[in-house]
Design a protein around this nucleic acid. Structure first.
Lengths: 193, 193
DNA sequence: GACATATTAGAATAATCATTCTAGTATTGA
DNA sequence: TCAATACTAGAATGATTATTCTAATATGTC
């Protein structure tokens, strides 16, 4: 049934990642991706309905990898381990780091997106929420809006903030970042929940 | 000398701000700004060399206003007052809040920008640095890289982080944000500097 | 081998915008 | 009133890119 494929999604996503790291988001044109991969542009469109979808899938791939490590840290180590996962992962994945800035989780609920993209976003978010929920229960014995808000700030928002300015200018987050995340962690969790 | 102006910079910047709030950054096309203001596109270009410069000036105007309040808080109140200025200001200026996400301070050092834009960026950054410096000296009696890093995190990065997700989805930051900023503040400043 | 079809090829098309350009127009100053 | 000029007007241009389209080309299946 049909000809054997010479190029697959992975290659195009890989090409897009490379271009993104070198030339920034605007550099990732469909022609650039095709050229980088050595494929004709038709083949890119054969795999991805649109540029938006290609970028979305790149984002999913990266976030999935990031989130996997985060959830493992959250389950095995304690919360601090998970909070520090952000700067560590970013240091180990400099190219991928910039991809994190490309979208927010709920970009895919607004607007027109293919169903599988929407579904992917939903399941990714659910997985994260579930992980954090069960962490909160483990740590505090019960669940509350307040505990969730704080935990999201300490484990997600604060680490991302600490790291963001370095991602934006292609620098490796320095050690002080870990220190600040650590202190924020102890601070916010010292309060009664 | 010459005809009286019917449209000035302020009107175009105001139009751009309105469009940004309603349709997001991509919606701010030069034609949209002209239409919103009721002016012909030629008049927009008579005031701004390019779209980039228009957007830059919008950003400057907003950041300047934000920063003014921040510096006053920093000088008059203590650091906590300044840290909390971010969520407060954003609540009072919902439209302007989104503008903050448009640029980073050092966007204007890289790349081609007119000299006055560069100068504006430099002076704005200098003013902020100066304010923080003198705050650090006032609070700790001396100056150190470490104290500066921490202060920037506590007064700038953490508040921005806490607020960012709400800005991105056009929501008003809830009270918990202030609470988190406050705790982060006490935490990080409890450590010896 | 011939057919069906998944895939390659990439030139042609189309849409979107920023920007330019040429022609008027109102105001100031002489 | 006249000349200089800052400004209005907006149609035309140009550049950039996403996307489409038609024609080949392999490869599995009958």
């Amino acid at each position: 049934m049909g000809r054997k494929a010479r190029y697959d999604k992975e290659q195009f996503i890989g090409g897009a990642l490379k271009i993104l790291a070198e030339r920034g988001p605007a550099g990732v044109t469909m022609n650039a991706v095709a050229e980088e991969t050595g494929a004709p542009i038709g083949s890119v469109y054969h795999r991805f309905v649109s540029r938006d979808v290609l970028m979305a899938e790149l984002w999913f791939q990266v976030v999935e990898s990031f989130q996997r490590g985060f959830l493992i840290a959250l389950e095995q180590g304690d919360g601090l381990e998970a909070a520090l996962h952000t700067p560590r992962w970013v240091r180990e994945h400099p190219k991928e780091g910039r991809v994190l800035l490309l979208h927010r989780r709920d970009d895919f609920s607004r607007g027109e997106w293919p169903d599988d993209i929407k579904a992917h976003a939903v399941s990714l978010a659910a997985e994260l929420r579930k992980g954090i929920r069960s962490f909160v229960r483990k740590k505090f014995g019960r669940m509350s809006k307040r505990a969730m808000d704080r935990t999201v700030f300490v484990l997600v928002d604060a680490p991302h903030a600490a790291v963001r300015r370095y991602l934006e200018s292609d620098e490796v987050p320095p050690d002080i970042v870990d220190e600040l995340i650590r202190e924020t962690y102890y601070a916010v969790y010292k309060e009664d929940l």
